[in-house]
Design a protein around this nucleic acid. Sequence first.
DNA 1: CATCAGGGCCCTG
DNA 2: CAGGGCCCTGAT
Length: 322
Amino acid sequence: MRLGKRASVILTPTSPFHFDGTMFNPSYFPGPGSHWEPGSFWMGLRWRGRPYGVRLRSPGAGSRTRVTLTVYAQRRPSRATLASIAEEISWRFDLNSMGVPEFVRRFRRDPYVGPLIRRRPGMRPHADILSLYEYLVITVLLQNTVVRRSVSMLRALYERFGQRVEFDGKTLWTFWEPGQVHEAPEEELRALKVGYRARILKRQAAQFVSGEVDEAALRRVRDQDAVAEALDGIYGVGPQSAGYMLMGFFHFYRGTEHLSPWEAKIMGRLLFGRATAPDRIVRFLARRYGEFSGLAGSYIFVDAFWRHRAKPIPWLAREIRL
DNA sequence: CATCAGGGCCCTG
DNA sequence: CAGGGCCCTGAT
């Protein structure tokens, strides 16, 4: 589908805001849903049942707290549509965050995260600009497999259920609605080589279709424990996936008690120079950063991947299994 | 060729 | 609360 018409609006994130640090997370696997280049970001967006193309741009040095949002569609987006997408993008990228600026102020001189904050002041961790349902699908595809296979499962699902959009010289995919997966027979999902996850995807889709999981309602709950409990009620969601969603989608900065072994290995090495038990790292972060422990962990983790991207870190490369 | 573990979670005992 | 099982893939 070709999306040739467009409309733009300026977004104003809370300051400080780091464009590239927010638009691109080098610790995530690259998907065909979005594309980043320094200063620019493109993504396919399924919004209120329709496919759109979205481009975000940093106006350049000197105006780091402003972002130009351009929405592409088949017909020129109305003012109301543009406004609703602008609001949605602001949520998903956490542009209106008050916590991140406070974290930056409080820990700019911290020996551990201070240098990372100064490298990317105002970076927002987030769920790669997906809706709750979409991010949930990603977490399922991550479970109990290697990255390469997660990527191929996602691609297969896009091609079966998603929508390909062309805009601004890019070709990207948008997700599908939970209803589409809900209606598809499980065998059809299995044919896409998602394995036992077919059952999980089906049951989750049903929970969204029935309204048992209500994204809008959950967003209004600004209590981390309450949201965590609700997420735990989604079939196929355990502490790991819930942790990702609490931080990346709901923007709770406190972090959870759960840290997976592979992440702990990396964090331990970064913090203490050697692999360390998950609970020790969790305690360390909690004591030092309190309500911002999750945010601190995210800065530490992502910064290492940025450095790795610039100049490969051999021990880190070994931990990233493709 | 066979075996195994992988960026979890559910279910059972 | 511990541990087996799960789809499939590529590494050994």
